[in-house]
Structure formats: C-alpha cells, structure tokens
Nucleic acid binder design. Structure first.
Length: 472
RNA sequence: GGCCACGUGGCGGAGUGGUUACGUAGAGGACUGCAAAUCCUCGUACCCCGGUUCAAUUCCGGGCGUGGCCUCCA
C-alpha cells in the first residue's frame, strides 16, 4: 500500500513515509471556541478524519496519533464573553463561553461521523510551553522584546515564507497595513503581548514585568511540540491558514528547536463558498453546522450529519467547494439508495479499491465512484453487500441509517395512520378483484395526502404486501 | 497593487498527451396490472486565443472569469 499525499511545502504529490511507522503523528488546527462552528470549519474536520481513518487502516489503529487542538484564548473570545455574560467576572465569562462552545462543537461534529482525535489539547493548558518557546526564541536570537511584547524577528530566518511561497520583499511591497512602531521589521509578528485590564493574563516570559497573553500562532507550536515532538509527519488545516498562521508556526517551531522542518507534510483543504458567494454574516449566508443539522434554515430542510459528510466528500479536498442546497439533495438521494444496506452485516474490511483511491491523495470522489460500482453488484450478491457496507462505514458516510433516519424532520407532515391502513386494505381488496380503476384511485388519493405506496410480493406466501411512507 | 488557486456535459465531479470516469437530472427500453425498486441503452463535455506536438481538455504563453491570501479571518 503506497500512500501518496500532496505536500504544500513542495507543491507536489509524493509517497508518504512516516518518521516512525509505529507512531504516525498528525496535527490539525482546531476551532477557536467563541461561536458555533460553521460549515467551513467542518471541512478540515471531515477531511482529516478521513485521513486519520486511512492512516489507522494502513499503520494500525494503535499506531497513529492525531492531535486536534482547541484554541480557548483569543481576542474574539474575550470580546464575545464580555458581550454575552456582562455580569460575570471576565475569567468566569470566558470559561463559560469556551466550555459551552467546545461542547457544542463536539456535539455538532459527532453527528458528522468523525472520530475523536487521540489528544485534544487546549491552549490555556499549554501556557507554560508557550512561555518556554518565547524564552528559547529570545535566547537564540530569533525573537526580541519591545514595549512588553515578544516579537519574532522574521529577518532571522532566511527561508521564512517558504510554505506560502512568498518572499519577504513581496510581502512588504504588498503590505497595506500600518506597522506597529515597536516592530523591528514590518513582518515581525507577536509571540506574546501585554494583557489589558479584564483580559486573561499569565506571568510573562523574558522577565517582562507586566502580565500578558500569547499571540495567535504560538499555541499551535506549543501544543504540537508537546504532543507530537519537534518534528512530526503531517500538519493539516484550511488553505487560508497557510499564511500567516502556518508560516508563523513553522518559524516559531523550527527556530526554537533548530530543525529543518516542523512537519514533513503540510496539507491544506480548499476554501468553501456558499451558493457562489463568500460566506459572511453581512451577506446573510453564514451557515453553522448546527443550523444544517437542527434547523430548516438552509434549503427548508434539516440535514442528517451523514448527508452533510457525503456532500463534503463529494469534492476532492483541495478543490474549492460551493456549498449549495442541491449538493445536499444529491448526497441525500445517494444515501437513500444505499440505505438498502440497513440490515446487512458488514464485512471485516473495506474494499481495497476504495482504499487505493483514498491512498491517492484522498481522492474521495473517485472512492465514491467505486462505491457506486460496488452498489450495483451488492443488490444481488450478499458478500458484495457486506463488503460495501464495511466500506461505507469505513468512509463514515453511512452506518446503518434508514431513509427515515436520513431525512430528519420528514415526519413533520402528519398523517392518520389508521386511515391510511384502511385505504390500503380497500385497495388490496380492489386489486384482488382486478378492479384496477379503483385501485389506482386509492393510490392517487393517498398520493395526494403525501403517502407513497410500495407493493412487494411476499416470497413465502406469494401474496402482495403493501408498505407505505410519507413523502416530504 | 503583489502572490496563489480554480474554470469539465442541465447540475455535481474525477481524470488523462491519443481509447467509457462516475453520480444525478432527462430520454428510451425490460420487469411490474399501474407504481416503486432493480436492470439495460443514450448525450459524445472539457472558458477564450495563440504555441509545442503526428495528436491537447490534459504541456507552455497570453487573456477573461471566479475565489483565496497579503490585516491577530476556517
């Protein structure tokens, strides 16, 4: 099994070779917990869950360490906490907000069929490591103290900008912002900054007298280093994070540890738009995972988590994706078709062709194409059905849901079941008498009520049996 | 303004220097009294303009369009 992955560092696909096959290590940037996670946040969560599953399949479930952090210290958190809980002390308000938001995040993504990472570190539990990083970077000349800040000196790192493929000259030429006066170089970034009153604070590194708090990027360097080591295998996240976040993580970690790389492979998922436009609150197309799952605000329907997951995996992870109602409708239709596997007992292993498709840089559309091929034979072949089910469970796109499960909210339309059953009985009588005019009239009557009939022949008795369900 | 992606049939979406992706919608057919499900068949797609080549949707250049980043935004 050869796993090939596209590496943003080298801009090409290459065979993946773990540093230690008995412990393959992957870090993915997790959420900043100040608000509901949105559908753009869901993409890396789902994509790297597929990679996690694949790595476990190839190297063994006990030989992969997946770290996805929770960032619980941030300006947006402070602002939101003060806004939502004005009567609480800042610390309590922040703790309440971050707890609630993290819990909501876990509930939302559980519905998307993602496995829990091995470690889910929180920034606030790694302040000591961040302070140590700051001190180490100052000690070896890569950072300096100015106006109670600790700043990273980008001029100290010759290949700064390699990940996002841009030079310092380019960045400075294109810069559109005012540069803080205490910075030595315009692209220098903050590792640590003084806290204002009411903000969370910790004692500062480098002998800075006033208490402070970490900058944006340092937490990932600290958590990745602590849980995965100075150099690890894979680092993932959204493409928008490549610069400045990942670039700065790399600068911090490499310069602090004196290593040529932070992670061997850098993977970035493409950006997501909604109905052809950038998702933003001002455009009114901002859509959270929870809204999709629990409300009818997107497309007038609730959407099952598996449907959301399949819709996401229908596009290759590096491609841009336009999140539309139609793609959810299509994903749901696909799962409806696959729900004939409801009662099937899954085989032990997923289909090797699907694994092979995933092993080619996570080609999930190709994997689904193979799934469709398997589905054709699975209709008549029990072994194929068992293998298909194992494959779908491996992908996490289908477990054992019925069509009812996959269509949350479809029972909203009330029907009188006893009335329906009386009509069906009458129709069966008419059918036996070959009164097809009456039979069809009853079918039409039920159809007008939103009830769809399905006749099947009982294999044992040869009798016609009719089942029914409520259409949307 | 600088840097970087992407542009495939009605829709979604892989991939490839020359031979079917696949799904979905639609059309026709088989099977069903009629439906549903299932099965079979079908469209001959690759933004525009140049170039390289025996051959380009696939490589190169330019253009147009969309998007991302350049600002403590997934």
């Amino acid at each position: 099994m050869t796993l090939r992955l596209y590496n943003t560092l080298t801009r090409q696909k290459a065979e993946f070779k773990p540093i230690d096959a008995s412990n393959v290590r992957m870090y993915v940037c997790g959420p900043t917990v100040y608000d509901f996670a949105h559908i753009g946040n869901a993409r890396p969560v789902i994509v790297f869950d597929v990679l996690y599953r694949l790595l476990r399949h190839i190297y063994g479930a006990d030989h992969v360490t997946y770290v996805r952090n929770i960032t619980d210290v941030d300006d947006k958190i402070n602002a939101r906490a003060a806004e939502r809980y004005p009567d609480l002390a800042p610390e309590l308000a922040i703790r309440k907000l971050t707890e609630e938001t993290a819990n909501q995040f876990h509930a939302d993504i559980a519905a998307l069929g993602v496995l829990a990472p091995n470690v889910e570190p929180r920034a606030t539990e790694h302040i000591v490591e961040m302070v140590e990083l700051c001190d180490a970077l100052i000690a070896n000349g890569h950072a300096y103290v100015a106006a109670d800040h600790v700043l990273f000196d980008v001029s100290s790192m010759p290949d700064y900008g390699r990940l996002s493929n841009r030079s310092l000259d380019e960045m400075e030429a294109g810069a559109r912002v005012e540069v803080a006066p205490y910075k030595k170089g315009p692209m220098d970034f903050v590792l640590w900054k003084p806290s204002k009153p009411g903000e969370p604070s910790w004692s500062s590194p480098a002998g800075i007298a006033v208490a402070g708090r970490p900058g944006w990027h340092i937490e990932c360097s600290a958590m990745a280093g602590k849980h995965l080591g100075n150099v690890f295998d894979i680092h993932g996240g959204g493409i928008d994070l490549a610069f400045p976040h990942h670039e700065n993580e790399i600068a911090q970690s490499r310069c602090a540890h004196g290593t040529p790389v932070m992670a061997n492979v850098w993977m970035h998922n493409g950006f997501l738009q909604v109905e052809g436009e950038k998702m933003s609150k001002s455009l009114g197309n901002f859509i959270t995972i929870n809204e999709l799952l629990a409300t009818t605000s997107f497309g007038g329907s609730q959407w099952h988590g598996r449907v959301v997951r399949l819709a996401m995996l229908g596009t290759h992870y590096r491609q841009p994706i336009d999140w539309t109602v139609d793609r959810l409708v299509q994903a749901r239709a696909t799962l409806f078709d696959l729900s004939f596997l409801h009662d099937v007992v899954p085989a032990a292993e997923p289909h090797p062709d699907v694994i092979a498709a995933l092993a080619d840089d996570l080609n999930t559309p190709s994997a689904m194409s193979i799934v469709h091929g398997l589905a054709k034979s699975a209709h008549r072949n029990a072994d194929q059905a068992a293998e298909l089910k194992a494959t779908l469970q491996f992908l996490g796109v289908y477990d054992s849901e019925t069509q009812h499960d996959l269509d949350p909210g479809h029972l909203a339309r009330q029907v009188d079941a006893s009335h329906v059953n009386r009509l069906i009985a009458a129709r069966l009588v008419a059918r036996k008498a070959k009164d097809f005019v009456e039979s069809d009239r009853i079918r039409d009557e039920l159809s007008a009520m939103g009830v769809a009939l399905n006749d099947t022949k009982n294999k044992g008795t040869g009798e016609i049996e009719t089942t029914w369900e409520v259409r949307r």
